[in-house]
Write a protein that binds this DNA or RNA. Structure first.
Lengths: 117, 117
DNA sequence: CTGGATCCTAACTGATACTG
DNA sequence: CAGTATCAGTTAGGATCCAG
């Protein structure tokens, strides 16, 4: 496999840390779905809750806060009655695109191998 | 972001499933390290335990079983006294390379953005 | 509409000791 | 050497209800 060469994270330890950070940030049950739906455009809390099947408001809140802290999404409170809140992706979030494409490709192959067999 | 087009997983639902499968399989605290070390060559249980800092034998066993079930690694019992067991990557595991490269690249950028500043 | 508060369960983790 | 067993602690996540 021999992981990527010529990258700024050069030592094995540093690579491991970068990998862990990334997997921690993008892993978990809901993160991907949230970012996926937000990639379609700005969404409100309710939009997300309806589109992401099975997520509870508590969990959605927590995931959104976490993503905001990591600068992947932006939270905007709208001046409406009643209050609405919009979420959208940051430029940084779009840098996950390569990860998603790779994950998607591998996931499709894997599903064929395991479940299709 | 507009996820990959022209892929066999065509509906949003199928894409979500493939993404979840992939992240579930490759996510978690230890998977990456295990696959990373196995990419250097065949290893025995003890080799892995020593190289992967902080992992307990119980957890290592579980992770290895899981990876084996998902056909990412192969477990071989050697005919020695005392018994030794070797683990190595399957061809399928090497297909995760693109995922790791992408994760690594994003992880490095993310670390700079979050911790660097 | 947004999302906090509370309660609860199952799963994951860690440390340590032990067996074939 | 390669795990299992045990016990205990932490966390993730679901269900429900309520407040600004």
């Amino acid at each position: 496999m021999k992981l990527i060469s010529g990258c700024e994270a050069s030592t094995t330890r540093e690579r491991t840390l970068a990998l862990r950070d990334a997997i921690e940030l993008l892993g978990g049950k809901w993160r991907i779905s949230i970012l996926q739906y937000l990639s379609f455009g700005t969404m409100r809390f309710k939009d997300l809750q309806e589109n992401i099947d099975g997520i509870s408001p508590k969990v959605l809140t927590k995931e959104l806060q976490d993503l905001e802290q990591n600068k992947l999404i932006i939270r905007t409170v709208n001046n409406t009655r009643p209050v609405t809140v919009s979420y959208s992706l940051t430029a940084h979030a779009y840098e996950t695109q390569a990860v998603y494409n790779a994950l998607l490709e591998f996931g499709a192959k894997h599903r064929q191998l395991i479940k299709g067999k």
